[in-house]
């Protein structure tokens, strides 16, 4: 069995387990390529039926508009229900404080909104498109990752996962984060997108954009991020991840379609999350965020 078939079989088996073991599953949908792959896998898992669970988008309000347009289009095309948890609402209601300073980002604020939305809508399994190859703390993540009442990840009390046996038994109030594409790499995702002819936001392909340099990274100009208007310039760039605009850097690129993007990633010498400012905050930045309930 080739790599993509193997990974697809594994992911769909996991998605069917989620539907079988939980009462109220949901797909955490960012509109990025990984969550689009997850949506597509979910569709295949239940054909000719429809996807038996909704999507949840945690909206930081700092989105790339291209992502939101496609999100709404996909919701129609895949005939799924969409829930939105708004970080702006959490800020307006005083439950989180906007970060200050030059590096201010809403990335870590998302966690509060996510946990509140999970509690309100009583989701017991939240599927995400996180992959183990993205970051070293994620390399330790289980496929079924149990979170306590506070949404916390305890890396020392993770359930052993043996063979293909997935233990989703939880107490009331707990929920499980599920990562069906754990074993995929960035390149696998791209090759799968090409094989299945999936549509992804245009910002993944090279385009002309106003950017500025910060700590050696090309940051997109937007209203959400402080920058000196004098220092901006236009460059042919694309994004390798789609996060909050305030923490996602672009990479210079001429790759305008899937073939050229795949060639570029094959030859790339920088890691995928190398352009994520949120991971660079400290040595254990991802691990620390995961402990308090981040994706």
């Amino acid at each position: 069995m080739n790599t993509l078939s193997y990974l697809e079989e594994e992911a769909i088996y996991i998605i069917r387990e989620v539907a079988g073991q939980f009462d109220r599953p949901v797909i955490l949908f960012s509109g990025g390529k990984d969550s689009i792959v997850l949506l597509h896998l979910s569709k295949k898992a239940f054909l000719p039926g429809k996807i038996p669970f909704p999507l949840l988008h945690i909206d930081t309000g700092h989105n790339f508009s291209e992502t939101i347009v496609l999100r709404d289009e996909l919701v129609k095309r895949y005939e799924v229900q969409l829930h939105i948890g708004s970080v702006q609402d959490s800020i307006d209601q005083g439950r989180v404080m906007e970060e200050k300073g030059k590096y201010a980002s809403r990335n870590s604020l998302q966690t509060t909104t996510l946990l509140e939305t999970i509690e309100q809508l009583k989701f017991d399994a939240c599927m995400g498109g996180a992959r183990r190859d993205e970051e070293k703390a994620r390399a330790k993540e289980r496929i079924f990752s149990v979170r306590d009442d506070f949404g916390q990840w305890n890396e020392k009390l993770q359930r052993p996962e043996l063979f293909d046996i997935l233990n989703g038994q939880i107490h009331a109030g707990e929920n499980v984060r599920v990562f069906p594409i754990s074993n995929w790499t960035e390149l696998d995702v791209w090759e799968y997108i090409r094989q299945e002819k999936l549509e992804i936001p245009s910002i993944y392909f090279a385009h002309q954009r106003k950017v500025f340099l910060r700590d050696g990274q090309l940051m997109p100009c937007s209203d959400f991020i402080h920058h000196d208007p004098e220092a901006t310039f236009t460059e042919s760039v694309r994004f390798r991840t789609v996060g909050d605009m305030s923490c996602t850097a672009a990479v210079p690129s001429k790759a305008i379609d899937l073939d050229t993007v795949i060639d570029e990633i094959r030859g790339s010498s920088i890691s995928e999350r190398g352009a994520r400012m949120d991971d660079k905050r400290s040595e254990g930045a991802m691990e620390e965020r995961k402990k308090v309930g981040y994706f």
Partner: peptide, 18 residues
């Protein structure tokens, strides 16, 4: 991958590498 592992210089949990 874990902070405690890097502190102690040992592997504690199963880590997946690609």
């Amino acid at each position: 991958g874990l902070l405690t592992e890097r502190e102690q210089g040992i592997t504690i949990d199963v880590s997946h590498l690609y």
